[in-house]
Amino acid sequence: MDLEDLYRILRTGHVQAQGIVDTVPDPMLVLDSALTVQSANRAFFRTFAVGRYDTIGQHLYELGNGQWNIPELRHLLGEVIPKSSAVIDYKVEHKFPEIGKRVMLLTARTVFNADNVSHLMLLSIVDITERSRKEAEFEAVFGELRHRLKNVLGLVRALANQTKAEGISGEEYRKAFLGRLQAVVDANDLAFSDHGEDGLEALVARATKPFQTAPETIIIEPGPPLTLASKEIMSLSLLLHELATNALKYGALSAPAGTVRVRWDVEQDDHPLLRLSWRESGGPPVRKPTSTGYGTQLIQFAIAYNLGGKVEQNYRTEGFEAEIVVPLERAARPD
């Protein structure tokens, strides 16, 4: 083998090494024992927005106006590396003048040459800025989710506690509780649906559907389209459920010929208002109940407490009526 051959082998060896280094997706530097950059891969140039000629042959700490002169990195290369042959995933945070703050995992490994005297160092730099931002985001979302879950469980507990159990059978209690729970589930579905189903019309149809004993027992008059906020959906869903339950037990829906008419209007003003009316007819003669039940209290909390609205209940002999007025949270947005 002559010198020419040896050179060729070394050259191809170098080319192969460079090829390997270039295929590594994370930034990588090859340093000599004096910390001068022998080689760098494409990911390094791309990630840190630097050019090849400003990098190769430069001392690491002088690269790009000293932007790699990082105390933690100096400690790693000066103190840690000489005592151990490799350091893996050493976390370093640094603010670069050009590309801003970066969170990096550094892995360094010493590679001894055949002569066992000189050595090279491979330094790989994994940019985890985006990953750690996503992790922090995930933590925040997860915390919020946990908080909401507890709130939902609190709500279910309250519903179970608010459903009258005195003087009725277990079956009746279960039916009443599950009916209310379903109204909450439906409201949640509507509030989170992204198919434009968060409108009042869809809500009225869905909340009254279980009570449509025959077609057209509950007549929904077409009204102006209205998109609702999620708390409005929850309150109105529970309200309609309670009204329909009462109608089925004592009102128009307890008689074969009874009907309910639901209609609404939106008052467009500086403070837009929703007026919703529930009118029963064709049922047995109505008498005002002697005591206010849980249902009435639930309606009051849903409309007055939660939405700052008003509920007026009229026990007319020929049919029960409820008029609901709700100030709309956002400016009404007709579709």
């Binding site: 506690n161 909390f301 407490y305 939660n306």
Partner: peptide
Amino acid sequence: DEFIIAMDLKVM
């Protein structure tokens, strides 16, 4: 601020 929970606490 959660109306059903407010009502529950009141009744309880």
